[in-house]
């Protein structure tokens, strides 16, 4: 890394799609507004639900979720995790999970800056 001591971390959260607005707001308040959002499907503790086509039932065990990815350098990852956890929380199974991963480097395409400056 170019500036040596600042660690880069990826906060990756699977959340309820309807909580995306609250999470965006919370990330702005936490000082980490940059994010990537993807529609994903996945399985956790949320029970399967039933759907139908022409009256025939089938169960859906992969639930539609939003994946929020946020690379942080100057803002502590713990603060971002806490912000997402509070904003995405309902207390019911299916609230999602948050993972924190180390990132070896980052480069900003426009400026060519790398490391913490790129984030």
């Amino acid at each position: 890394m170019t500036d040596g001591d600042t660690e880069l971390e990826l906060v990756m959260a699977m959340i309820r799609q309807e909580k995306l607005g609250d999470v965006k707001k919370a990330l702005v308040e936490a000082g980490a507004p940059h994010m990537t959002v993807t529609n994903v499907s996945g399985r956790g503790s949320q029970p399967a639900k039933t759907s139908r086509w022409r009256g025939e039932e089938y169960s859906i065990d992969l639930h539609q979720k939003a994946k929020v990815e946020c690379v942080v350098a100057d803002v502590p990852a713990d603060d971002v995790v806490e912000a997402i956890q509070e904003a995405a929380h309902t207390g019911e199974p299916g609230d999602g999970k948050i993972f924190v991963l180390p990132v070896t480097d980052a480069v900003q395409v426009r400026t060519g800056d790398s490391g913490a400056d790129a984030v």
């Binding site: 759907s51 089938y58 169960s59 859906i60 992969l62």
Partner: peptide
Amino acid sequence: RTDGGVQDD
């Protein structure tokens, strides 16, 4: 099936 749906019965 992106929703992972399987037949129930």
